[in-house]
């Protein structure tokens, strides 16, 4: 019996999202499962954004902290280093210093940081809060205004604070990350709630919540895969925004990226182990449908770029 290629045709398509004002980045737009360009259209590469923070990365493990030694004391220098030296296609600025348990910086401080970073770079900017529901609703409103006209991504809107954040992102013409916790139904529900406010669904990015390899990765993997199948096979428009995998922050806090080889000789070299952990987590989530990745270690990001080169 001759082989006949068992192609699938899908009724839906992932929304194409363009970010940035000077230089732009485009992702999404495919009408097939990840990297299935053999049976449809996958016009854009996934985009990797390099993570920088508003405060020095004291809590990052040595492997990744030392890469940014000398530049990470200041978010502007740090962002410029990622853009100019590491060739980052996008920057993700995490305002972790606004967290009440950290430096508790004010929304005004955060707005100034955002303005300074935007003035220094020309690649697209993703602006992230500290993941504290109440504080984020104040901080992200203030930074949305500060970044008006720059076509940024603001995040993350969650069930407890989406109204104020979505309104601010809408008023200032930004894209918006909607994050829910590892459940396809919660994710769909949040996207619906946000679009019911009048927010354009084609300006959304879904974050189904990331997990690190070995620490719940299979949950993120399958939720993403199910979201993507719903978008493509059922043409469910609430599930058609591109997806974010916020990889770095989940990977660089687990034991495998911190425990020394002296303590655990069977785990091998710490530096390579950490970098591989970030690359493998990111690579797996590309296979399940992520189009936007936030990463920390440049060697991990570069390996993933090579992987994408081979896949496209």
């Amino acid at each position: 019996m001759a082989f006949a290629a068992p192609n699938e045709t899908y009724s839906g398509k992932v929304f194409e999202v363009t970010i940035g004002a000077d230089k732009t980045a485009v992702f999404g737009g495919e009408n097939v499962l990840p990297f299935h360009s053999f049976e449809g259209n996958a016009p854009h590469r996934p985009v990797i954004a390099y993570e920088v923070q508003d405060v020095p990365p004291e809590d990052w493990p040595e492997t990744v902290k030392k890469v940014y030694e000398g530049v990470s004391n200041d978010p502007v220098t740090w962002a410029k280093y990622c853009q100019d030296t590491l060739n980052a296609q996008a920057i993700a600025l995490r305002l972790v210093g606004t967290h009440p348990d950290r430096e508790n910086r004010s929304p005004e401080d955060a707005a100034k940081t955002v303005k300074d970073v935007l003035a220094a770079i020309n690649v697209p900017l993703i602006i992230l809060g500290s993941n504290q529901i109440e504080k984020d609703s104040a901080v992200l409103v203030s930074v949305s205004e500060a970044a008006k006209g720059k076509n940024c991504i603001i995040g993350k809107a969650q069930e407890g604070n989406y109204k104020t954040i979505a309104a601010a992102a809408m008023a200032n013409n930004h894209k918006l990350i909607a994050m829910s916790e590892l459940d396809i139904n919660l994710s769909k529900q949040l996207n619906i709630l946000i679009t019911q406010m009048g927010f354009d669904k084609e300006r959304l990015i879904t974050d189904p919540m990331c997990s690190a390899l070995g620490y719940g990765l299979e949950y993120t993997y399958s939720v993403m895969e199910r979201i993507r199948l719903a978008a493509l096979t059922q043409n469910d428009t609430t599930m058609q925004p591109p997806m974010l995998a916020d990889v770095g922050m989940y990977v660089w806090k687990i034991k495998e990226t911190q425990a020394s080889e002296t303590d655990l000789p069977q785990w091998g070299s710490l530096a390579e182990r950490g970098i591989t952990w970030e690359a493998v987590t990111a690579g797996s989530l590309l296979m399940s449908g992520a189009e936007l990745l936030i990463m920390r270690h440049p060697e991990a990001a570069k390996a993933v770029e090579k992987f994408i080169d081979e896949l496209m």
């Binding site: 495998e256 091998g268 390579e272 182990r273």
Partner: peptide, 8 residues
């Protein structure tokens, strides 16, 4: 390498 094995 052990680090690669562990991840895979």
């Amino acid at each position: 390498e052990k680090w690669k094995n562990l991840a895979l």
